[in-house]
């Protein structure tokens, strides 16, 4: 993380976020560094509990206190360390410069306010718009997100919109103050497949059109493949592999990434007799093993993996992996167990 590119918008360095639980301290995010450049789409991929959502909440200063606490690291955003800002200063950044889109479009909108009010409110607070200006902006952003007849729709309440439409509304609210970065936490997980495609296409288009950078947090490898420029794979609070989407998918250099890619059935491949699952259970963050957290589930683990935590090191250019045996892993295509049967 020494060479910070000139167009780096968000630079997270060695971020550590902890939660106090009745079973002890959980290091939800454990020394994670990553960055987002202006206008690009970066993905944080991982399963529940890997720390991807907590990373986003840490950036927004929204980690639930008092149990949760950012205990270390820096979050540089446009020349300022967000962790050093006061709550008032953070409030100006939230929604204005960094906006967030949540997973649940049903519950992230206030049911008793018109959608117009929910969009204009942000513009009035952050941009100092008059009600008339804010209204005009609201109609405009509804147009951007593909909701026609904005003037009429603004008077309606969230329950009058379907799930996909509500997610468009969330994106419209996020866009309304022209942020530099949108954090989208599982933006399509609650939506149907055909609607998912619409929403992701929309986010990609808007990013191109307005130069907004996107950070997509997801567990869905398919979503990442289609929309992300760069990918960070997280496991048990750490980044285990990062690189461009193409590198990660064509040549995964971490057994976890490899396992994820192999375990999902794919429509473009012949049907396999059996899937190749990752063995074992997701890690219990209160009692992580010494060494690599993935080692207990890893088919390639050697003794060293159980003793020393592997650092994130380059396996070719910007492609990095935190694995002692990264160089000797097989490719994605090599299927050890599955005999192929014709579809």
């Amino acid at each position: 993380m020494t060479d910070v590119a000139a167009d780096t918008l968000l630079d997270v360095r060695d971020l550590r976020t902890e939660f106090a639980t009745s079973h002890g301290v959980v290091r939800a995010v454990d020394g994670v560094s990553w960055d987002v450049r202006a206008g690009e789409t970066v993905a944080l991929v991982g399963e529940s509990g890997c720390g991807k959502s907590v990373s986003a909440l840490s950036i927004m200063g929204l980690v639930a206190r008092p149990a949760g606490r950012v205990v270390g690291g820096e979050i540089w955003f446009k020349g300022r360390d967000l962790l050093k800002l006061s709550e008032d200063e953070m409030r100006d950044i939230r929604g204005r410069e960094i906006a967030m889109v949540f997973q649940e479009p049903m519950t992230s909108l206030n049911p008793v306010l018109t959608v117009g009010r929910q969009i204009t409110e942000a513009c009035e607070i952050h941009l100092g718009y008059t009600p008339t200006q804010a209204h005009a902006r609201a109609v405009e952003v509804l147009g951007f997100v593909g909701i026609p007849d904005g003037a009429r729709r603004l008077k309606q309440y969230p329950h009058q919109f379907s799930g996909g439409m509500r997610q468009r509304l969330m994106i419209a609210i996020a866009l309304s103050c022209r942020p530099d970065l949108i954090l989208a936490d599982e933006p399509t997980t609650a939506l149907d497949v055909t609607i998912q495609a619409q929403i992701l296409d929309l986010m990609k288009d808007l990013s191109r059109q307005f130069g907004t950078a996107n950070l997509i947090i997801t567990h869905n490898l398919g979503v990442v493949a289609r929309y992300a420029d760069r990918v960070n794979v997280m496991y048990a609070g750490k980044i285990v592999e990062r690189g461009t989407a193409r590198e990660i998918y064509a040549n995964p250099r971490h057994p976890y990434t490899l396992g994820l890619l192999r375990s999902v059935p794919r429509l473009d491949e012949p049907k396999r007799a059996r899937l190749d699952p990752i063995q074992g259970q997701p890690p219990d963050l209160t009692r992580l093993p010494p060494g690599c957290a993935f080692a207990p589930r890893c088919a390639f683990a050697i003794d060293r993996c159980r003793a020393e935590v592997p650092p994130l090191t380059s396996v070719g250019g910007a492609h990095q992996s935190a694995c002692w045996v990264a160089d000797s892993l097989p490719g994605v295509a090599a299927k050890p167990v599955a005999e192929q049967v014709p579809a």
Partner: peptide, 8 residues
Amino acid sequence: TDIASVDT
């Protein structure tokens, strides 16, 4: 007999 036997 996979796996799911990890006792936490």
